[in-house]
Structure formats: structure tokens, C-alpha cells
């Protein structure tokens, strides 16, 4: 999986400072490395990819969201997941006295370039117990095809 449209393309799509700068931004609470794409669009999601028969399954842990705050888009074989972890009781938050606040409230943004062509109209997404599962059936034309090797033996 490689991030699409990555502005940090000096290393062929791989940004060695990506994780570090993201952690720094989070630590300072503002874009310390201003303009970094990750911070503006949202945090990266940890995604697992599985195959089952002819299906491709993308699974990601995003606890405490409402299904309406998750959007999944597929375009040109690129899967985009956007999610927002909003505090539902913003007004009640003022009355709360926090002793410990470890859980993150943030935006998530993740693009995955799919390894195979998919049938866009048959994609299903399901959010249960804080786990987002996207099931993408592979398109017919991406299945195996044998290629004949021709050899010209006349000399």
C-alpha cells in the first residue's frame, strides 16, 4: 500500500519522517511541521488487509464512532476512508472534570490503493463493535489469465 498523491515524494513514495512528524504534531497539539498533509487531512488509520476467496477485506479499528461519521469512497481503484471521532456531548464536557484523558478525538483519513480491480457496485461496509469492515469483491477481469508463450523455432 502506498499513499497516493503524496507531496513528499522525494523517496519514491516513502517518507522517512512521516511517523515522526505526526507524533511531534500530536505532542505539541498544533501543526509544528506546518503544512504536513497528514495533519491537515487527519490521522492515519491502522488497517489490516485480508483476502477471502474472490473478496478483498479491509479491516480497521475505530472505536466510539457513529456510523454516519464514517465515509468510505472508491474511485479509480483507490479506497478512501474518512472518519471523525466527535465528542457527542460537547456541552456536557464542560461539567466533566477529567483526571485522565488518553483517548484521542481526531479526524482520520486513509487512502489505500487497491491491489486488484473491484466491482464498485457490490462493495459493502459494516461497522460493528468499533471495527470497520469493508468487503470488496474483485472484478472478473482481474482473475487469473494464462498467457501463451510463443517461440519462433524457425532459424
Amino acid at each position: 500500500m502506498r499513499k497516493q498523491n503524496n507531496q513528499w515524494d522525494l523517496f519514491g513514495g516513502f517518507d522517512p519522517f512521516e511517523k515522526w512528524s505526526r507524533e511531534m504534531n500530536r505532542m505539541f497539539g498544533f501543526p509544528f511541521f506546518a503544512g504536513h498533509k497528514e495533519f491537515l487531512e487527519g490521522d492515519k488509520l491502522n488497517t489490516n488487509l485480508y483476502t477471502e476467496g474472490n473478496n478483498l477485506i479491509v479491516q480497521s479499528n475505530i472505536p466510539g464512532l457513529k456510523p454516519e461519521n464514517i465515509s468510505v469512497n472508491v474511485k479509480d481503484n483507490i479506497l478512501t476512508i474518512d472518519a471523525e471521532n466527535k465528542s457527542t456531548e460537547n456541552e456536557n464536557n464542560k461539567n466533566k472534570k477529567f483526571y485522565r484523558n488518553e483517548r484521542i478525538q481526531t479526524r482520520y483519513h486513509q487512502t489505500i490503493s487497491l491491489p486488484a480491480k473491484t466491482q464498485i457496485d457490490k462493495i459493502t461496509a459494516d461497522y460493528k463493535e468499533g471495527v470497520l469492515t469493508i468487503r470488496l469483491p474483485k472484478a472478473e477481469d482481474s482473475s487469473k489469465k494464462q498467457i501463451c508463450v510463443k517461440c519462433d523455432e524457425s532459424k
Partner: peptide, 20 residues
């Protein structure tokens, strides 16, 4: 990850446990 806060007279603990 956990949040611990006081809401009225109650102490509330919230834990992120996706997949459970």
C-alpha cells in the same frame, strides 16, 4: 486507552476496546 472523569457524583471510566 482510558478516559477517567467525574460527572456529578459518579466517576466514569471509558476504555477503547475495538473488536470486543
Amino acid at each position: 486507552r482510558a478516559d477517567i472523569y467525574q460527572n456529578g457524583d459518579d466517576i466514569i471510566i471509558e476504555l477503547d476496546m475495538p473488536g470486543v
